[in-house]
């Protein structure tokens, strides 16, 4: 067995009086899709935010590729190869496709050799190439992404991750706001990314989605780890029972 790319050990996080995460441990291997299941408030979002550097757990450790992630800011975590795609899409609606793809890592050229200016053209052409790779055409790359459809916006978020060579992709309800064909696009994309040895953490309320794409299922219940099963060795009933805390 290869080394796990991500290891969480005893991760705990409180918000005031609320214990959002309590002693959660798991491993994730390259090319593996781990589904996070759990009811609302079970701690799924807190867990992925702890990995991506938005929250900092009080106890426990998270290591990625042998590196301790504690104390790192979201930008530093992304630089290590952990990309997060959020349910609210994390795109700035007023910026165009290129700027959104490169937000936080803009391409800059130097005017007259010293004055730094954004290279909007390069960012647009690069992003058009990436989107074409995914088979997604955007009518006008100079339009603010707020004018695009939900699927197109999701595609931009995903292509951002791929462009930045993510080795761990975290997806929070990536299909929640999408129509059926666009949901299929995202599911197929996950399978393709797995073939490229990308590790994926996948959050969904939809058990069909979870069983369709994941290798393992980690169930959270009120901040605790309620159980961990191989997708091939469990079924809907057991997962639901774990989610309810009754297994």
């Amino acid at each position: 067995m290869t080394e796990p790319i991500l290891s969480a050990r005893g991760v705990s996080k409180r918000f005031g009086g609320v214990q959002a995460l309590k002693d959660v441990s798991f491993d994730l291997y390259p090319g593996e899709v781990l589904a996070l299941a759990g009811d609302n408030g079970a701690g799924k979002s807190t867990l992925i935010k702890a990995i991506s550097g938005v929250h900092h757990p009080e106890e426990g450790s998270i290591t990625f590729d042998g590196r301790d992630l504690s104390g790192l800011l979201p930008g530093a975590v992304r630089d290590l190869g952990i990309e997060t795609i959020y349910q609210d899409l994390a795109l700035a609606d007023n910026l165009d496709v290129g700027l959104n793809l490169f937000l936080g890592r803009e391409i800059v050229r130097h005017l007259l050799g010293f004055l730094p200016v954004l290279d909007r053209t390069k960012m647009r052409t690069e992003s058009a190439a990436i989107l074409q790779n995914l088979g997604i055409r955007v009518p006008d790359p100079t339009l603010p992404v707020g004018n695009l459809s939900g699927g197109q916006r999701q595609a931009i978020a995903i292509s951002r991750a791929i462009y930045w060579n993510a080795r761990l992709l975290i997806m929070d309800e990536p299909t929640a706001a999408l129509g059926v064909p666009e949901q299929r696009l995202v599911r197929d994309l996950i399978i393709r990314l797995r073939e490229r040895q990308v590790a994926i953490i996948y959050i969904s309320h939809n058990l069909n989605d979870i069983f369709a794409v994941s290798d393992r299922i980690l169930v959270l219940e009120r901040g605790r780890k309620a159980g961990e099963r191989k997708a091939s060795e469990t079924d809907d009933n057991e997962v639901v029972k774990l989610m309810m805390g009754s297994a």
Binding site: P74, G75, Y86, A92, D93, L103, P116
Partner: peptide, 23 residues
């Protein structure tokens, strides 16, 4: 024309997106 400007627009357009992009 600067990153500073893009981040200003990003904060105004979607504060969370700016935070998550590491701004």
């Amino acid at each position: 024309s600067t990153r500073f400007g893009v981040y200003t627009y990003a904060i105004g357009g979607n504060y969370q997106a700016a935070v998550r992009a590491g701004v």
